[in-house]
């Protein structure tokens, strides 16, 4: 068996999220170094605040200030921080009930070691130097000996309230394609297109995905197909893709390779885009060192008969 193919893939998005009135007040408050909670119908103060009572589902909008000092309700020592976490060095995760609040906020506590942390210890907010209206405007908590912190008298009304946050998300993966697709990719590197035949219905799938979607069984028998094929259907691409060095307009087509029972897709070149048609006979064009066909070009053969490929549209 050949070596497993692997490739790193990073999935990364900046999520742009809008805020409701209570979340906006809370995050704007953090920007202004004011911590706000929200009062429920039964008189409890929730920090961080939400817009609906988690018990009654009642809409709650009564924003009140709480102190930037509080008490640890539980903690966990994180000796090896991971990417994105609030502090680069070892720290404690903590739930902190701020003075004046009835619920606890999750954040990091900067402490010299686990022996310096316990449930019930007093802590205060350490503000980030640059604040934008985000939970990370609290850099972390730090141990604190004094009385409850002073309130600023803030009402929850601020100039330029934040209306949204941008939350970047990034996850790193190592892809491996599996048995069937590994064989397909390796054969392509040899300039051969190799599909797999279903042992039950005898259809040849290209590219193979490892299973016959009709029979629900593994495909295993390898079958070389092509190199020639027939355009079954196509579209004309008019928008240039980012990072793709192909002039528009160009044609992207479904191509039924000779011997295949499933059309694959590829770009059609070597012919003006407005002359591509269903039934056009094409063949792959390989570039020096390329591990897959760069595009497909006309062979010059007569067009394929519609009845020959109508099941593969």
């Amino acid at each position: 068996m050949s070596a497993v193919l692997k490739a790193p893939v990073t999935v990364e998005f900046p999520f742009t999220r809008s805020l409701g009135p209570v979340q906006s007040a809370f995050l704007t408050g953090l920007r202004e170094r004011v911590v706000l909670g929200v009062r429920t119908g039964d008189g409890r103060t929730l920090v961080p605040p939400v817009e609906y009572d988690p018990v009654t589902a009642e809409e709650i909008r009564d924003v009140v200030e709480v102190a930037p000092t509080g008490t640890v309700t539980t903690w966990a020592w994180n000796h090896a921080p991971r990417r994105g976490q609030p502090l680069a060095g070892p720290f404690a995760w903590v739930l902190v009930r701020l003075d004046g609040a009835d619920t606890a906020l999750l954040h990091a506590l900067d402490a010299p070691g686990p022996d310096a942390v316990h449930t019930g210890m007093r802590v205060r907010v350490r503000w980030a130097e640059e604040r934008t209206g985000a939970i990370t405007d609290i850099a972390c908590f730090e141990p604190y000996d004094g009385e409850a912190g002073q309130l600023t008298g803030g009402t929850g009304e601020f100039e330029n309230p934040v209306g949204g946050i941008v939350a970047p998300a990034r996850l790193d993966y190592t892809y491996s394609p599996g048995r069937a697709q590994t064989a397909y990719i390796n054969a392509l590197a040899d300039r051969r297109t190799v599909g797999e035949r279903c042992p039950s219905c005898r259809k040849v799938y290209v590219p193979p995905r490892g299973a016959c979607p009709t029979c629900g069984v593994a495909t295993e028998e390898r079958v070389e197909v092509g190199p020639g094929g027939t355009v079954t259907t196509f579209c004309i691409v008019n928008i240039k893709a980012k990072n793709l060095d192909i002039e528009v307009p160009y044609v992207y087509a479904h191509i039924a390779l000779d011997g295949a029972d499933l059309a694959l897709h590829g770009r059609i070149g070597g012919i003006p885009y407005d002359q591509v048609r269903m039934g056009l006979r094409v063949e792959p064009v390989w570039t020096e060192g390329g591990r897959y066909p760069d595009h497909y070009r006309p062979t010059g053969e007569p067009d394929g008969d519609y009845d020959m490929y109508k099941e593969l549209l």
Partner: peptide, 19 residues
């Protein structure tokens, strides 16, 4: 809004519960 930007991993949250 309030939690994911801090990237608290699954073990960390379970550890808070254990403590």
């Amino acid at each position: 809004y309030y939690v994911a930007p801090l990237w608290p991993d699954s073990v960390a949250l379970a550890a808070l519960q254990a403590q």
